[in-house]
Write a protein that binds this DNA or RNA. Structure first.
Lengths: 207, 207
DNA sequence: GAGATTCTGGACTGATCTGTCAAGAATGTT
DNA sequence: AACATTCTTGACAGATCAGTCCAGAATCTC
């Protein structure tokens, strides 16, 4: 019936996403996007619409990925919930460094650049952060169910703290902070958890 | 000898700073800057150089201001050091909301937008954050001297945590977080301090 | 293999961008 | 009051921007 597109939409969106994350929204031109995707303007416009629409789709792709990864990383059996909370913080400290291009969290980046002026962007980012925060709360509650955390611990506030620490580590890393300092911050954040005696013993003498 | 400039350099830099903080570096045009300063292009270029130079001077003005304010807020007698630490966190949670235009921290914003590509910007921001972190360390040490904090508390790590929390609150607020959540995060961060018995009594029964 | 359909690339348009420049206005000095 | 100097404004140039469009290439169906 017709000629099929000669490119993979998902792959193109990832290249677009990388470019936006590197140069920002205003700092990225359509020529830049054509260069990294090796596509002509016509193909991009036909497949994704204008620049703003293209950005939204790239942002959505990032959000879906990060949600899938983090929700999976925070989900699991109750007796490992505490470990998952620790991993959440330490990986926040490491992921920006390990990322070969030093790109930070896309949601955080565009919360700062665009959320104040672009409702569609703000909405998507807010949903992304809410989902992650909810998963954190669930994980904290799981650790409580397992008897690792004091039942009086305010799960939502702790989740908020962890969210701020993750975003803050991201920003400070962009600003050239030392990885040791970020690890220190992550450790201190974990130390805020009101561990029960049982959990404390288990952690100091792991397996 | 000659005609004096008809504008106040400091005032113009503040108007420029506001515009950059609102729209970002790439998102701000010289026409925007001429509009907010009510100056012609020639005047701006003669007084401040090109766009990049103008931005650097506006950023420096912001950094100087924030350094003066925060270093003063963290400096004082040892017996109030703990209160100053608490104020640092709670004001981080409130300042973005109280700011009439909802502009966040300029250092954080441009750490995210520019630090990866602009060494001059990165350097200035890094110095800004280092100065504040050092002041936090000094304040923690002061609280230890006063017998409010456990002497074994890792001052530098705690300062790193507070820095990440402050930056994180800023980002999440831009993303539309509730102020109650940010207050919760600030409270939890404060709760990480290993208070001595004396300090705990003093806080629960203040004055 | 012919034809219909869609994809692709790049030229093009009009708007906007940064930075320059010169003419005129305003001020201090003599 | 006249002059020298500096400031100010807005027009201008060259580059770049987002978005449109069309001619030609590629593919599928029959």
């Amino acid at each position: 019936m017709s000629r099929p597109p000669g490119f993979d939409k998902t792959r193109v969106l990832e290249q677009v996403e990388r470019q936006f994350r590197k140069s920002g929204y205003s700092g990225t031109s359509l020529d830049d996007l054509c260069a990294v995707t090796r596509l002509g303007r016509g193909s991009l416009y036909a497949a994704f619409g204008d620049k703003h629409n293209l950005f939204l789709q790239a942002l959505d792709g990032y959000c879906r990925r990060s949600e899938a990864i983090l929700l999976a990383a925070l989900d699991g059996p109750d007796d490992e919930a505490l470990d998952r909370l620790r991993s959440f913080l330490t990986s926040a400290a490491h992921i920006v460094f390990s990322d070969s291009d030093g790109l930070g969290c896309m949601a955080g980046k565009f919360a700062v650049e665009l959320a104040g002026q672009d409702d569609a962007v703000a909405l998507r980012i807010k949903r992304n952060l809410s989902l992650i925060q909810d998963a954190l709360v669930a994980c904290i509650v799981a650790a409580q169910r397992n008897g690792d955390l004091d039942l009086a611990a305010p799960a939502r506030d702790i989740a908020s703290l962890f969210m701020t620490v993750a975003r803050g580590i991201d920003v400070l890393t962009q600003a050239g902070a030392e990885i040791a300092d970020m690890e220190g911050a992550a450790d201190r954040a974990f130390a805020i958890l009101p561990l029960t005696e049982a959990a404390r013993r288990r952690l100091t003498v792991p397996a």
